[in-house]
Design a protein around this nucleic acid. Structure first.
Length: 170
DNA sequence: CCCTGATTCGC
DNA sequence: GCGAATCAGG
């Protein structure tokens, strides 16, 4: 079932793409068994590319890839694709960020000192990631976290308690 | 593992 | 021209 790129669909594609929709989103909306690959392929063929990135900005030209290798030797010199200078992209919508986290760790990776508790707090991939930062007793953790970190083998009935105590620190 | 776009190349 | 496969990255 090859829907083919009718003017309609191409128009919709352009619109949605320029709107900032992701390829997969557009593929869904166009329906008709169009995959995101198809969308991306078409987009490139149309010469559209690069725009405000909605969610996961996978910037182009981040790295040169060896390209795909399936069968047949590369005999094609491959014409120069397209020299894209940095174009002024549409201003990305800036959603306001509310709320400040409530009392995260007191130390960041930058301020974490030698004798500060290195118990991680929060998602390490988050900018809000921090460390406990309290006085480290002997090891790298403060007393409280050391207890959690160095839990001896669970005793009977200790599971729930551990789970509860862990929860407190996460 | 989810997602993103980019690229190549057999069809 | 088309798009699956593959890649690279967040």
């Amino acid at each position: 079932m090859t829907a083919g790129w009718t003017e309609d669909r191409v128009g919709a594609l352009k619109k949605l793409w320029l709107e900032g929709q992701s390829a997969s989103q557009i593929a869904k909306q166009l329906g008709g068994g169009v995959t995101r690959n198809a969308v991306i392929g078409k987009v490139h063929r149309l010469g559209l590319s690069g725009r405000a990135t909605p969610s996961q900005p996978a910037r182009a030209a981040t790295t040169f890839r060896p390209a795909r290798v399936r069968t047949t030797p590369p005999v094609q010199p491959s014409a120069p694709r397209r020299i894209e200078a940095a174009q002024p992209r549409p201003v990305a919508p800036t959603p306001s960020l509310p709320s400040v986290q409530e009392l995260p760790g007191t130390a960041t990776v930058m301020t974490l000192g030698a004798h500060m508790c290195k118990w991680p707090i929060g998602d390490p991939s988050s900018p809000e990631f921090s460390f406990c930062g309290r006085r480290a007793s002997e090891g790298v953790y403060c007393v409280e976290h050391a207890r959690v970190a160095f839990q001896p083998a669970l005793k009977r009935n200790g599971k729930d308690e551990l789970a509860r105590s862990l929860r407190r620190y996460i």
